[in-house]
Design a protein around this nucleic acid. Structure first.
Lengths: 102, 102
DNA sequence: CTTATATTTGCCAATATCTGACAAGTCAAT
DNA sequence: ATTGACTTGTCAGATATTGGCAAATATAAG
């Protein structure tokens, strides 16, 4: 249930001495939703990550990477072949990268 | 649009000299759907993979791994930090594995 | 023990996304 | 021009996710 992303958000929010009730409105949601996001039972929208990064003064891609990692983990979490699948996906990504350098 | 999974399914289906119209009913769908799956515009349901593996005489986890890899790729395909995210997710998986060996 | 503040949880209507089914389309061979 | 294999478009219905509120819980203070 807990997510890397949610845990990091909470950690950063507490470091900044901010309450849910202060941060939530900046993301146009209520405290209940943000609470659920930190607890991992809801997902923040991808496009809100940059805003949250600013609010929490996180460093550049920190939150994005954790958010993505959570999504990836979700896909394979119950699979015996999780790591094999990850490697297969990585290869595809690396091939794309190479060929994008037209 | 094309998927590794879809391409492999097509390849295997042709190797077995089977038509869409023969395979589709075994998966309880129509040929249009199966066509889209091979083309990558629709997803086969996770739980149907073992059945399809049998039908196409694929080897054990081949199709499952490709199917999962496609899902993973989908999460990060437009992200600059795709590989970083993959590595972060891999670490989580490897830690789970270790701790599961109670 | 009551109040106050912060957070969490449960619920459900609203919205978004995915799927199944069919019809119509292309393409190649005859 | 007909047939067979496959593809594509559409759309209602099924599923899943979200937003928002209200009630529950937790902690601290008085």
């Amino acid at each position: 249930m807990a997510t890397q992303f949610g845990e990091k958000v909470r950690e950063l929010r507490e470091q900044q001495h901010l309450y849910l009730r202060q941060v939530a409105p900046l993301l146009e949601m209520d405290t209940a939703q943000l609470s659920k996001i930190e607890k991992g039972s809801r997902q923040l929208k991808r496009e809100q990550i940059p805003l949250l990064t600013g609010i929490l003064k996180a460093n550049a891609d920190e939150l994005l990477v954790l958010w993505l990692a959570d999504q990836l983990y979700d896909v394979v979490k119950d699979e015996d072949v999780a790591l094999k699948a990850m490697e297969a996906a990585e290869e595809v990504i690396m091939n794309k990268k190479k060929s994008k350098k037209k």
